[in-house]
Amino acid sequence: MSVYMVSEKDAKKLKPSLMAGLIFVLGIVAVLIGQISLNMVLTQDAYQLRSLTIEKRNLATDVQIIQEEVSSLSSPQNLADAANMLGMVANPASVMIDIDNDKIFGEPAPARADGSEVASANLVANSALGTVSEFSMATVASGELEVSVETANLASSGLVLQSGLIPASPTR
């Protein structure tokens, strides 16, 4: 190892330039800024990911709520109760019409609310029923309903079947 003694003048010449120092410092600053920017972008992405995950989870919850409502409304128990509330009565006396041979199979009979082997109201338990069909005066004109049921009964009592033939429509 050698050590050299230089004059003051020469020492001044050997002094590092300001420009080089500035470039060095600026370089370091630039690297730091770059690092911070990258970090910010990554962090921002992470927050966005988290926000989207939460949104997805909330939407999935909304879907579940709606699906449960639909399941409840479309369950046979709700449909049976709703039909019953509307005054509908199950009619076990179904009648088949053979169009080709102009024949009717079965005895047409008006549905009765009592004494039928086919229950009209729901008898099958379902504790999962949440949202059920509701009928108010706004959705069902009960007065008109009664009239229409009565009219239907009158019409059916006036139906006369002759030797199993399909009755001709009065409009034909």
Binding site: S71, S75, P76, Q77, V124, A125, N126, A128
Partner: peptide, 8 residues
């Protein structure tokens, strides 16, 4: 577990 149709 949900059984939408209940006892069906």
């Amino acid at each position: 577990r949900l059984y939408p149709m209940g006892a069906v």
